[in-house]
Design a protein around this nucleic acid. Sequence first.
DNA 1: ACGAGGATGCTCT
DNA 2: GAGCATCCTCGTC
Length: 181
Amino acid sequence: MHGWLDDEDVVAIAPRLLGMRLRSEVGDEPTEVVIGEVEAYAGDQDPASHAFRGPTPRNTAMFGPAGTLYVYRSYGLHWCMNVVTGPEGVGHAVLLRAGIPTVGRDTMTDRRGRLDHLADGPGKLAQALGVTGAHNGISLSDGEIRLLPGEGETLAVRATPRVGITKAVDRPWRFVAEIPL
DNA sequence: ACGAGGATGCTCT
DNA sequence: GAGCATCCTCGTC
């Protein structure tokens, strides 16, 4: 399943996640978004990656097989989720930064505590789907959180520098799906 | 629309 | 002890 996720080139994989669906079976009602913004992190080739200096207690999930979910806590407050890619052991991952809510809107507004800005940021996306550190290391193929095919529409994609980092700031490894008019 | 500042706790040096 | 792959609120324009 998702055979292309184990490709060596995480920068090529990242934009292919745009338009895919991310479905959560956490809680009573399923929730789902279409992935709209991602960033590539290239393991030991990438000073901005959590895996840059090799395995640690926090980042072990990054060195698992492609299709593993890596969840970490950001700024002591928020959870952020990544899709592990590449051959097992390389530490590549794609940060999921934003999604368009499609299923379970009521549950997402409950979890977010507001009616707007439900999943337009990495911490907000994880919160809307009910994803926490308890999901770190699970498979995105057969678990509570799943990566599913999109509708197959062709998306216009814009590449920009990554957000919120202080190292390797020049690499245009953030990919945003342009909303068609 | 945009920017500054504070909240908050874990990870690794 | 420093440094975060962030979010929210409250100011301005």
